[in-house]
């Protein structure tokens, strides 16, 4: 069992979720309620990582991370280390890969709130922030939670993009999914089985938890 890889995967999943939470609320809400130019394009971009082969996405990320690209150069300038094959690069890739999982359920949840309920909140004297906090978030919460759980579980399982942009540097970019592949290549079936089982258990547990929470909230709103 490669504990270091498991720990790295959990760390990556945690940071992915933590950074995507505000984005999923902001962008999901904006896409649900806003009418702006280029909304269709934004929605298409949000969905794109879902349909693109991980290798294609990984390739472009790799190009963008390289020291020759503006992003890669800027990163090296600011932090003195390359973005490619680093944990930060892996995290950035993970954020991009998970945008559809984080934004779409939140968008659907905000869309499901009846427009009159939001208008009623305004007529009750609530400003935009209080409306978000007291009415929209409590009602959209199951969707936002689903978004976070999906991102978490998906990050644990992501393989292709991680392989492309991260390589397999132990402690830096070698996630548990990569470690499993690594063990299989080395004919270490026992270690691969052990880690697969752990990943399976964590993923199942996370999703079961999210369903249980959603049901509880659903019952409350009954």
């Amino acid at each position: 069992m490669d504990w270091q890889a498991l720990w790295l995967s959990l760390r990556l999943a945690f940071w992915t979720v933590a950074l995507l939470l505000p984005l999923s609320i902001f962008l999901g809400r904006r896409l649900a309620y806003g009418a702006f130019r280029g909304k269709g394009l934004v929605e298409a971009l949000v969905t794109l990582p879902l349909v693109l082969p991980p290798t294609v996405l990984g390739f472009y990320l790799l190009v963008a991370f390289s020291a020759q690209s503006p992003l890669g150069a800027l990163w090296r300038e600011m932090f003195g280390q390359p973005l490619a094959f680093s944990f930060q690069g892996l995290l950035l890739a993970s954020l991009i890969v998970n945008i559809p999982f984080a934004v779409q359920p939140a968008q659907r949840a905000f869309e499901a709130i009846a427009p009159e309920v939001r208008e009623a909140a305004a007529c009750c004297g609530m400003g935009p922030l209080r409306r978000l906090w007291s009415v929209e978030l409590p009602l959209a919460w199951p969707g936002v939670l689903t978004a976070m759980v999906l991102s978490f579980a998906h990050t644990l399982g992501e393989f292709g993009v991680v392989l492309m942009v991260g390589g397999a540097i132990p402690g830096e970019t070698k996630t548990v999914a990569i470690a499993i592949y690594d063990r299989v290549q080395a004919f270490d079936g026992a270690a691969a089985a052990q880690m697969s089982l752990a990943l399976l258990a964590i993923s199942l547990g996370t999703i079961a938890f999210s369903f249980a929470m959603s049901r509880r909230v659903g019952r409350r709103l009954g």
Binding site: E116, V117, E119, A120, A122, C123, G125, M126, V135, R220
Partner: peptide
């Protein structure tokens, strides 16, 4: 003035109560 800055009481056709 946006709705939240008008002291207005509104009863909606669907009532629009806060379900939570």
């Amino acid at each position: 003035l946006p709705a939240h800055r008008r002291a207005v009481g509104m009863v909606f056709q669907s009532y629009a109560l806060f379900p939570h």
